[in-house]
Simulated assay, not measured.
Amino acid sequence: MSTKIKLGILGGGGDSLIGILHRVASTMYDQYELVGGVFNPELSESIAFAEKIGIRTDRIYKDLDALIKAESALPREERMQVVSILTPNFLHFPMAKLLLENGYNIICEKPLTTTLEEARILETLLEKSKTVFAVTYTYTGYPMIRQMREMISNGAIGKVQKIDVQYYQGWINPIIHDAEKRANTWRLNPEKSGISCCVGDIGTHAFDMIEYVSGLEIKEVLADLNYLYKDNVMDIDGTILLRFSEFVKGVIRTSQIATGEENNFTVSIYGEKAGLKWEQENPNYLYLLQEGEPLRVLKPGHSYNSELSLDGTKLPPGHPEGIFDSMGNIYKGVARAIKKEKYHPAEFPTMKDGIRGVNFIEKAVASHQQGNVWVKIDE
């Protein structure tokens, strides 16, 4: 009998990029078997999609209620053990809530929820269910990001004193300048996306990345957001100042109207002894900067890297690894947790990371709305 973890997926059908990413990632270490789910709000489309990707259709359901009812009727060893939530933001909370109430392990796209209140409810339910809950801040799975984290933790750059993170995209340009298009895009609809577009979509990646690699917590934020048009109620660009302590400061620069940019996510951490820099579009290179020394470039797969980095490296040095591999490392960590195997706490983002991400989104928007003032992030 297969020992693979039985996986269900909600959303991610059709030509969804995030759907492909999760499906491929789940197959990387031979830990999961995709057995069904709800790929689309229309049952016929879900069934057609299942046929297209080559899985059986007897466990394709019309909605989550039907999924839980049918799966609960199966012998325990045949039931779905973990469900991935890949739907628009407003569905994350009700779906995760119902799954937790029925004892499922969950892998959820970010942001965790659209409000901090909802996130706190899920936190309470998780404490009761004692299941595994991961939030897919995908970029934390890159081997050289994990190397960056371990180097900072081990004192390689000394005390952190400056953090600068940029996440620039230009994808919303064809939409934002057309009144009809911007009125009919779910990303710009607060009822479906939450209170923020840019900060909620990519700014939260930057926030989580900073805390992941630096080991520091952001205490306060001051945000200046841009909406571009008066009839657009969702931010599509912004600059956010960060305070970690009295003497450690930083900045997040995030935009979806950076014309010509694709996925320019750059993380720079500067310490008293050295600096480290990583670029998502060239993820195999981690740059080490030291005063009076030539620039050093660290690459994955070499013995000089940390155990955490090497564990997430699938190929010999010189063979590029990318975002599919990064998400695959997160799925691998979740599999270890579900199987109650030993795993590193940095192998996958948890609900705590998801809650802090939602907290950050709310405080950044509040800072802007209150006149660009400093706002504390709740503990």
Rank of each mutant, 00 (worst) to 15 (best):
P94H: 13
I240N: 05
K376P: 02
L286N: 04
V334A: 03
A156F: 01
T185R: 13
M209I: 12
R243I: 06
G158H: 11
Q169D: 09
R182A: 03
M28D: 12
D237L: 03
G250V: 05
K6I: 03
T239I: 13
N105P: 09
E347A: 03
Y32M: 02
N359C: 10
Y285G: 00
V248K: 09
I47K: 13
E291R: 14
I240M: 00
K352H: 14
S245D: 14
T3F: 11
P75H: 06
E101Q: 15
T239F: 07
K110Q: 09
I252N: 04
G155M: 05
I210L: 00
I60Q: 02
I323E: 06
G328A: 15
L276N: 04
L295D: 03
D164S: 07
Y104A: 00
S309V: 02
I5H: 09
A274Q: 08
L98F: 01
L222F: 00
G301S: 05
D201I: 14
A274G: 09
E127C: 08
S193F: 08
Q369D: 15
A73C: 03
L64V: 13
I361K: 04
I53M: 11
M28C: 12
E150R: 04
F39T: 10
I355V: 15
P294N: 10
K352P: 00
G13M: 00
H22M: 11
A66T: 14
E117N: 00
A50L: 05
K363P: 03
Q256H: 14
G260P: 11
A96F: 06
P174I: 01
G54Q: 08
A179D: 15
T27F: 08
I257E: 06
G312L: 01
T239D: 12
A66R: 07
S2R: 10
L310S: 07
A50C: 06
L116F: 10
T87C: 12
D30G: 08
E272K: 14
L43Q: 14
E33N: 10
P94Y: 14
E341Y: 09
S245T: 12
G203Y: 05
K192T: 09
I47Y: 09
H344S: 13
L310W: 02
N184K: 09
Q169A: 10
R296Q: 15
A223E: 02
V132Y: 06
V199K: 00
F247Q: 12
T185P: 06
S2Q: 09
I152G: 02
K340T: 03
T266I: 15
Y287K: 15
F207M: 13
N284A: 15
V165D: 01
V251E: 12
M327A: 10
F93R: 01
K62T: 13
W374A: 02
L216S: 01
Q280L: 14
I5T: 02
G312D: 01
D378F: 06
Y61Q: 09
S84Q: 11
E78K: 15
